[in-house]
Nucleic acid binder design. Structure first.
Length: 709
DNA sequence: ATTAGGG
DNA sequence: CCCTAAT
């Protein structure tokens, strides 16, 4: 399962990115302290203390004037960092890019920092007017972040930071060896914390950071941290971002794991937000779309200002009439497909490769790597907290007991978007918050068999087949958001809806407290929630539910059940705000919610086709589905197609709500009949034709009894 | 806007 | 269901 979330560092919905109105001179000052990761590692302690001091100073007089101008380092840290300078110098040698530190901040306004309420935001960076400056700034920033980290160590936040820091450090692909060693040493120290954290948080799935080529966006992907050896890569800085970009869009940076469709490029807004996106799976997409389409979401505020709404309105007005932006969609689609393929390959549920990353790096392996799960985390009392999906192995003991050992859960994908002005520390916190938010809420364990979710809690393992060794291999567990939600009774809707309903809401609830200006927030959590679920789960849910319940899953269910965000439970200060999917997917057309045909609908369809024949779907629609707005003629056609297929396969192979054999027989009969009468269709379709046909035994209706032509 | 087919 | 191509 994957979760996507968007975190907003602006707890209060401020535009952090906005540059203060203060005179340039003022704004320009910078107080970056630079610290390399190396530095961080090696002189960790020193830095910590130093950082603290610096921070204090900065906070107090953050406005140290600095000449942002052309000097890189000199300018940087001039004021504030003075003390720590020596250390810094050492540290600074390494380029941030190399280090993979992600932070990029160009200008931070004081207000912004305040808004972010990040302790970390101590650094102000000069406004950079020229590209070079930007670049430098970025570098500087990175160093700053490390400093911050050090400083924060003590605070709780620090923990998270450290955690992250460790990962990061390890992750660095290109980092110098020495650094490595440093990290190692540190590692031990924090090992514990990290472990713990990891478990709690479920491990951050993140790793690859990269700045997207798209000038406007920085994209960081965080691969799932897998085992203890957090091998995460933070190539983020690798691709130098075109300076120009920064200069123009300096305020906005996106960090995130993307999904298929996500197009970071679009984010030019000046926003300081983290977005956690949900996983990309196909299913996930659907879900998302579903959500989007739902009333709830619609009503939800959006950040129009920042987002670039799709021209076509993003959502379709109605299911049937959907307009697509071909360009956009196409791109997205492509990605999707890639993704799917990728997904297929991976045995375990993988998190979809970051979208953007995928497109760029786009290698299956990559995805795999990211997919790692936290090996260390065992499922314990609350092991579930660790993360999302786990793959399990189970052993059967001699007695009737079945033993399961869950090696790990996978961490959901998280998409984060932060403004350039955000500090690394804030980023970390945001990530942490996002993770904790996800995990913090009620989580419920799901059981998967063959990738399908086993919903019936009352069945015994034996009945479910979980006691069988054979099935154990296919057994899976998932961590889903607990569904406290009210509305939808699970049983009632066997369909996939449950997921939405029950799961999403909860997560969502929590982070909404501080909706940002843009209303993106609301969705973010939702996404997470959704993400949490495994795609496979979703899919399977659907079927399984149906089979188990054996109830007609009449599609009458409103596709958009109102998801109501639950009250956030605990996320207090989380800047994490859900971001509306729109931002990501806004460009993409949303996939319509799935609405299985009910038997009655099938009946009507069959009847209509018997009379009108195939190839006249519009007429079929008009005749039998006039009132069913959600059924387009294309849908009918497709349904017929599937019906024919269904009728031809063995009953055992059929899935979903069973269609009476009688109807299937009629389907075959009609299909055969009309296949032979293609040419005539036009002529005879009228009532007369029907009558006419009726007489002959070969008429579809005649064949209704099961006779075939 | 429909239809037909592939995905 | 979606998408595309061809009507």
């Amino acid at each position: 399962m994957k979760l996507k979330k968007r975190l907003d560092c602006r707890p209060h919905g401020f535009h952090v990115a906005i540059i203060p109105k203060a005179p340039r001179s003022v704004r320009r000052r910078v107080q970056p302290k630079k610290i390399d990761e190396d530095g961080e590692v090696c002189a960790f302690e020193l830095l910590a203390s130093l950082a603290r001091q610096i921070l204090e100073e900065e906070t107090e007089s953050s406005s140290a004037s600095s000449n942002a101008s052309g000097n890189d380092r000199a300018a940087i840290g001039k004021d504030a960092v003075e003390d720590g300078r020596q250390y810094e110098d050492k540290l600074m040698k390494t380029e941030c890019l190399d280090q993979g530190s992600c932070e990029v901040s160009a200008v931070v306004s004081e207000s912004a920092s305040l808004n972010c309420n990040q302790k970390c935001l101590l650094n102000e960076f000069p406004l950079v007017e020229d590209d070079d400056m930007l670049e430098r700034t970025l570098k500087t920033t990175s160093s700053n972040s490390s400093g911050k980290i050090g400083g924060d160590l003590k605070s709780e936040i620090c923990k998270s930071n450290m955690l992250e820091g460790n990962f990061l450090s390890k992750a660095e692909g290109g980092s110098p060896n020495n650094r490595e060693s440093c990290f190692n040493s540190m590692e031990n120290a924090f090992e514990q914390q990290v472990e713990t954290k990891a478990m709690e948080t479920g491990g951050l799935n993140t790793a690859t950071t990269r700045i997207s080529k798209d000038p406007t966006e920085l994209c960081m992907t965080f691969p799932a941290l897998t085992d203890s050896d957090k091998d995460v890569k933070l190539p983020s800085c690798r691709d130098p971002v075109p300076n120009a970009t920064f200069s123009r869009h300096r305020n906005d940076i996106k960090l995130g794991i993307r999904d298929d469709d996500d197009n970071l490029s679009r984010f030019n807004k000046f926003t300081n937000k983290l977005k956690v996106y949900r996983p990309v799976t196909r299913i996930g997409d659907r879900r998302i779309r579903k959500l989007l389409t739902s009333k709830y979401w619609k009503s939800a505020p959006r950040l129009k200002d920042f987002e670039h709404p799709r021209t076509d309105g993003g959502m379709r007005p109605s299911h049937r009439k959907r307009k697509t932006c071909y360009n956009h969609e196409k791109c997205h689609r492509d990605v999707l497909y890639k993704r799917r393929r990728f997904y297929d390959r991976s045995s375990v549920e993988t998190f979809d490769g970051g979208f953007s990353c995928e497109s760029v790096t786009n290698s299956p392996e990559k995805g795999r790597n990211r997919d790692k799960s936290i090996s260390g985390s065992m499922l314990q009392a609350n092991g579930m907290t660790s993360s999302v999906k786990g793959h399990q192995s189970s052993l059967r003991s001699k007695d009737s007991n079945v033993k399961f050992s869950i090696k790990s859960f996978k961490v959901p994908e998280i998409f984060i978007e932060v403004s350039e002005t955000a500090t690394v520390g804030s980023l970390k916190r945001t990530v942490m918050d996002a993770v904790t938010a996800i995990l913090g809420g009620g989580i419920r364990v799901g059981v998967l068999m063959h990738g399908k979710k086993v919903r019936d809690d009352n069945r015994t393992l034996s009945q479910t087949g979980l006691a069988s060794e054979d099935n154990l291999d296919t057994l899976g567990f998932t961590l889903d958001p607990s569904s406290v939600e009210a509305p939808a009774p699970p049983l009632v809707c066997p369909e996939d809806t449950p997921l939405l309903l029950s799961d999403a809401p909860q997560l969502v609830a929590r982070s909404l407290e501080t909706p940002a200006l843009d209303s993106e927030c609301p969705n973010a959590l939702t996404d997470l929630a959704l993400l949490t679920k495994t795609e496979t789960l979703v899919e399977s849910n659907h079927e399984q539910a149906i089979s188990h319940t054996d109830i007609l899953t009449d599609t009458t269910l409103p596709d958009s059940r109102a998801l109501v965000a639950l009250p956030a439970s605990n996320v207090e200060a989380l800047a994490v705000v859900p971001l509306n999917q729109k931002s990501r997917r806004s460009d993409m057309a949303q996939r319509r919610t799935r609405r299985p045909f009910s038997v009655s609908e099938v009946e009507a369809l069959v009847h209509a086709v018997e009379e009108l024949g195939t190839g006249r779907w519009r007429d079929v629609k008009l005749r039998s589905f006039e009132d069913a707005d959600h059924r387009t003629y294309v849908d009918l056609k497709d349904k017929w197609k599937t019906l024919v297929h269904t009728a031809r396969i063995a009953p055992q192979q059929r899935r979903g709500e069973p269609v009476p054999q009688e109807l299937l027989d009629r389907v075959l009969a009609a299909h055969s009949y009309w296949s032979q009468h293609q040419a005539k269709q036009q002529g005879k379709h009228q009532v007369a034709g029907v009558l006419k046909i009726e007489a002959p035994t070969d008429h579809p209706n005649g064949a209704t009894t099961g006779n075939q032509l």
